[in-house]
């Protein structure tokens, strides 16, 4: 039963992260939301690996990829925020809508 519960945990983490990403105006908070979502993914990967396919290393590779993704996301996020801040002295998504179609 714990397999499904851990998956529910992963879903919960993912949804909270999603809520954060959608509702926050500040870019940093949005990044935090995304961090949580990737955390959910890691838990789910570990859970799948542990309960379904421990023989293969794929589950672990997914976790590694997820961790790398988290790192990249954090780095690029801050780079974009710095560039945006330097250019426009603003850090919320509402002010930066130049790419409007």
């Amino acid at each position: 039963m714990t397999f499904e519960l851990v998956l529910v945990l992963a879903a919960g983490l993912f949804s909270v992260g999603l809520f954060g990403a959608l509702s926050q105006q500040s870019i940093v908070m949005i990044m935090m939301g995304i961090e949580l979502m990737i955390g959910g993914v890691i838990v789910a990967a570990a859970d799948f690996w542990h309960f379904l396919a421990p023989a293969a290393a794929d589950g672990q590779v997914v976790i590694v990829v997820a961790v790398v993704a988290m790192a990249v996301e954090m780095a690029m996020g801050f780079a974009v925020t710095t560039a945006l801040y330097r250019a426009r002295q603003v850090d919320t998504t509402d002010m930066a809508r130049e790419l409007k179609g």
């Binding site: 879903a11 919960g12 993912f14 999603l18 809520f19 959608l22 509702s23 105006q25 509402d94």
Partner: peptide, 21 residues
């Protein structure tokens, strides 16, 4: 308050959570 569009976000994330579970 750095929040906007709370109800929309809440709705979507709840829907996602419900569909995942």
């Amino acid at each position: 308050s750095m929040l906007h569009n709370k109800r929309g976000a809440l709705g979507i994330s709840a829907a996602v959570f419900a569909s995942l579970t």
